[in-house]
Design a protein around this nucleic acid. Structure first.
Length: 456
DNA sequence: CGACGGGACGC
DNA sequence: CGACGGGACGC
């Protein structure tokens, strides 16, 4: 095959050390250098320009010496405005030149490492060893299914790409840490159930008894892909940054069916950065886990959401199928509107402060707090273009949603069309998760199909 | 929407 | 015997 003996900036050597930037065309190499040099050793900056006109195409590549530097720069600079009057930049790890793909490299592919470990290692050992490089979302060991013995291989999922990169760069070589290949997407049940199923009534959940959570938070198995993991009505939410119960409550209450929410506290009453959530049914819990695990709340703080044992045995194949059915029915209820969803609400909540009512907004997108509208004569700084599918939502709903992202001036729907404009007199800060990846594309089919910044 | 230049490897 | 090197997730 081909051989490459070229400077490391030619290829992505080391892997994932090169950034792909999308910027306004006026952004120059000098501006990029100035804004990106704090993150590490820049080996190359290349602003792609039109061959004839020499005008920037609004695309640049920044090569760092290390992947962790590139990842950190990405995490810090994505969505930032680097020059007065220009649009926020997008920052991704560049696809390697040999791949030929131009698909965005997702955080999902950059946060999980694959390591070789002593057979004697427990998952706690694994966690302990690798937590020095960043907060671990979960650590699992591959085991022989029948004997349960370790195969000496493990996965560690971090919250941020820079943490995984640091682990790979700095951990002992004997671990042979590399980025894990994403698990083969057997796009099967997951997407099919969540996006296509439309059944019209919810099945009745078999009544659940009590909630004997494991004595400590250790009794849960963390993992990805709900179809292959323990599924329960109970979730454990972990946060690195301090969050208060009201925040967690309002977040998880966006999914109908929450009946219990409580922060975990130590014996002195200090928060352990974890909360337990219980839903009235499996579908809600599955959906909450699917949508909120890894969500940045507040921005920059990835929440970790895992199922914890609720004492039910659902290991039989029949039980699994039943769960999938329930989950599918839950999905359709959420997406078919509030009327169905309200049926799922229970009044069983306790230890839960009463929250301001948001009667009509039903979305799985996590929203910042409600803010007052700006006066209608304010100068419009930024506009969002919103495409609805299948039809626009009521203006009052849109106001309720979009006032949270900036200083909202006006929601305008183009009469007779499925599009509208959101005007704001402040910069509208859409989180990373809303401008890339599936949070936006499949989160809320009824609400926002696509957003793009348009400055006029 | 928003993706690949200039210059050079080294027994 | 010990060092080396190897390496993948229940659908």
């Amino acid at each position: 095959m081909e051989e490459y003996n070229r400077p490391s900036s030619y290829l992505d050597d080391p892997p994932n050390s090169r950034l792909f930037l999308v910027t306004s065309k006026s952004i120059t190499e000098d501006i990029i250098r100035e804004r990106f040099c704090p993150f590490g050793e820049i080996q190359d900056i290349w602003v792609v320009k039109d061959k004839q006109t020499k005008e920037s195409k609004g695309v640049s590549f920044v090569k760092f010496a290390k992947s962790s530097q590139a990842c950190n720069a990405m995490e810090e600079m994505h969505g930032k405005c680097v020059a007065e009057g220009t649009k926020p930049i997008k920052v991704f790890i560049a696809q390697s030149r040999s791949s030929g793909s131009h698909r965005d490299v997702e955080d999902e592919e950059l946060t999980r490492i694959f390591v070789m470990i002593p057979k004697t290692f427990t998952e706690d050992d694994l966690k302990e060893t690798f937590k020095t490089y960043g907060d671990i979302e979960y650590a699992i060991i591959i085991k022989n299914k029948s004997t349960g013995e370790s195969k000496g291989l493990g996965y560690v999922r971090y919250h941020k790409p820079s943490q995984a990169a640091k682990a790979i760069e700095n951990c002992d070589k004997t671990f042979r840490a590399i980025l894990a290949e994403p698990r083969t997407k057997n796009a099967s049940v997951d997407n099919d159930y969540f996006s296509n199923q439309r059944s019209d009534h919810a099945g009745n959940e078999p009544g659940l008894s009590v909630y004997p959570f494991g004595a400590e938070s250790s009794s849960y198995t963390a993992g990805e892909g709900w179809n292959s993991e323990m599924i329960t009505r109970c979730l454990m939410v972990s946060s690195r940054m301090p969050v208060v119960q009201e925040q967690i409550y309002s977040l998880f209450d966006l999914i109908p069916g929450m009946e219990y929410c409580e922060m975990q506290r130590d014996q002195y009453g200090f928060s352990k950065g974890q909360a337990m959530i219980r839903y009235s049914n499996l579908g809600s819990a599955v959906y909450a886990r699917e949508k909120l695990n890894g969500f940045e709340y507040p921005p920059g703080n990835r929440l970790s959401v895992t199922f914890i044992d609720d004492g039910e045995d659902r290991t039989s194949p029949v039980g699994k199928m039943a769960m999938q059915l329930v989950a599918a029915q839950m999905m359709s209820m959420v997406w078919n509107g509030p009327s169905g969803a309200q049926l799922m609400k229970t009044s069983a909540g306790y230890a839960t402060p009463s929250m301001p009512q948001k009667p009509r907004v039903q979305t799985d997108v996590v929203l910042p707090s409600h803010k007052k509208l700006a006066s209608s004569d304010s100068v419009v700084k930024e506009r969002l273009f919103v495409i609805f599918n299948p039809t626009p939502l009521p203006v009052d709903i849109l106001e309720d949603v979009f006032c949270r992202f900036g200083s909202l001036v006006e929601v305008y729907l183009v009469p007779g069309r499925n599009v509208g404009y959101i005007k704001s007199c402040s910069l509208i800060h859409l989180k990373r998760s809303l401008t890339r990846g599936r949070e936006l594309t499949d989160a809320s089919p009824r609400l926002v199909k696509r957003l793009s910044d348009m400055t006029h």
